[in-house]
Amino acid sequence: MTAAETMKEQKMIRFEIYRQDDLDSTPYMEEFEIPYRANMNVISALMEIRRNPFNKKGDKTTPVAWDMGCLEEVCGACSMVINGTPRQSCTALVDQLEQPIRLEPMKTFPVVRDLQVDRSRMFDSLKKVKAWIPIDGTYDLGPGPRMPEKRRQWAYELSKCMTCGVCLEACPNVNSKSDFIGPAPLSQVRLFNAHPTGAMNKNERLQSIMGDGGIGDCGNSQNCVQACPKGIPLTTSIAALNRDTNLQMFRNFFGSDNEV
C-alpha cells in the first residue's frame, strides 16, 4: 500500500470547536478533522490539533486552548461542554461520542480563551461559605471528637467534589442575571457541618448561605445531581441544608442563646 492509499483509508474524527480569543471577543466556530487513533479521548484529540494546527479547510490556525490537569477525572480542570453536555474532557472517549464532536466552553464562567474558563467564582464561594475546619490556634488543641465510621464513609462521597463547575453550568438559576453560588459550595457546607470538629462552627456556615446568592436561590430543577460526574447527592444536600437553614432562621428570629 502506498502512502497516498494509507491517507485515503485513514479514518478521520470531525470536531466543531467554539472558539473565542478572549473574554470580550466574538465567539466563532471552527471545524477540524484529525486522524483517528484507537482509544482517544477529547484531550488527546485536542493535543493532536495543537501538534498540527490546521483546520478542516486546511488553513493554518492557532492551536485551541483548553485546561487540563490530572487526566483521571479528579482535578476538575478540563470541564467543557461536549455535544451539549457539561463534563470532563479527559473521560470523554471519542469512540463513545457522536460526530461531529461539538466542543464549547462552559459559558456560565468567564471565558479566558477558547475552551478555557475562569472558575474563580467557585473558589470565592468556598471562602464565603467557610468550607474548612478551623483548628489553628496558639496551642495544641489535642485530638478532636471521633467520627462514626458510617458517617465518615458517607461524608467521603461529599468530599469527592472537585469544583469542576459542571453543576453550575447545568443549573438554570446560575447565570448572569442571578448571583446564586450554585450547588457545589452548598454541598460543601453540609460536608463540613457533618464533621464533628467542623460542626463547632455550624451556624457560621449556615448563616453564610442565608444571604444573597445563597440556598434560597435554588429552584429544584435537580439538573445538578444529574450532571455531577462524581455522583454527589447534591439535591439531598440542598434539601438537608434547607431544613438546617430554616431551623437557623427560627433561632435567629425568635432568639436563642444556643448558637451552635
Binding site: 453536555t85 438554570p172 438559576n173 429552584g219 430543577s221 435537580q222 439538573n223
Partner: peptide, 24 residues
Amino acid sequence: YIAFTSRNNPRQFGTFRNWMFIMQ
C-alpha cells in the same frame, strides 16, 4: 422576578424535574 432570573435549558437537560421547573 424569580421566573425571569432563570435561564431554562431543557435541550441540554430534558429530565422530568427540569421540565417541571420550567412548567412551574
